[in-house]
């Protein structure tokens, strides 16, 4: 019984569930972000206020932070174990065919983590009162950030890498949960492409539009 807690499959199971939960959150966040394109700051600030104060959302928020932490910690443990499992690499180049994006999960994930930290400093920690700022006016704060060219470039790179991460993550989570089906797995593959393009493209479009117009 002790083994189940540390088994490779258990770790992946937890990671997949946490990851899938995070996948459901992204569209919600994106929906709110689109309100940044509105010249009236009120709807966005209201939505942000609602997310910050409505009690059920607070509970989901705790689960969300837990999911992020679990996903990162388990991801790191799995990756380190995987590096240990091949102490001496191939000298003639690893050319074995693999799904391309799956090779970089730790690096795309790491970049997303750095982005999250910056993002938390800019917004989430302000809301929690840990960092100075006006939590009732995230609209202006976001608009100010999106006028910094360097920030926008970093933002775009992060979301492209998020797309790479999501593309493998989506289908992989189902396989890990044991859901592999003759008909549905190819459908999930297609959905993962759509999701991995649309969600990051949605996020990335906002600074581009604000920046240009």
């Amino acid at each position: 019984m002790k083994h189940v807690l540390f088994a490779s499959i258990s770790k992946k199971f937890v990671m997949a569930l946490a990851g899938l939960f995070l996948l459901t959150f992204l569209p919600v966040h994106l929906g709110i972000n689109f309100m940044l394109l509105n010249s009236d700051p009120e709807p966005f600030n209201e939505a942000a206020h609602f997310m910050a104060t409505f009690p059920p959302v607070k509970i989901v928020e705790i689960i969300l932070i837990a999911a992020i932490l679990i996903h990162i910690i388990y991801g790191l443990i799995i990756q380190i174990q995987n590096w240990i499992a091949r102490p001496v690499g191939y000298r003639s180049g690893e050319k074995a065919e693999t799904s391309f994006f799956s090779k970089f999960m730790i690096w795309t994930g790491g970049t997303i983590f750095i982005f999250l930290l910056i993002h938390f400093f800019n917004f989430y920690f302000v809301k929690l009162g840990l960092v100075q700022g006006d939590p009732e006016n995230f609209y202006d704060m976001a608009h100010q950030l999106f006028r910094i060219t360097g920030y926008n470039i970093f933002y775009l790179i992060c979301f492209i890498l998020l797309g790479f991460h999501l593309y493998h993550a989506f289908g992989s989570a189902f396989q890990t949960l044991g859901l592999n089906h003759r008909i549905w797995t190819p459908v999930i593959k297609v959905l993962s492409v759509i999701y991995a393009i649309l969600i990051p493209a949605g996020f990335a479009s906002i600074p581009i539009i604000i920046w240009l117009f």
Binding site: A7, Q81, I84, A85, E97, S102, G171, Q175
Partner: peptide, 21 residues
């Protein structure tokens, strides 16, 4: 599965190289 983990194999990350090769 317990033995597989114990003898030092890595964790599957669904990359699919195994199936291809």
């Amino acid at each position: 599965v317990a033995k597989m983990d114990e003898v030092g194999f890595g964790n599957c990350s669904n990359t699919g190289a195994c199936e291809a090769e």
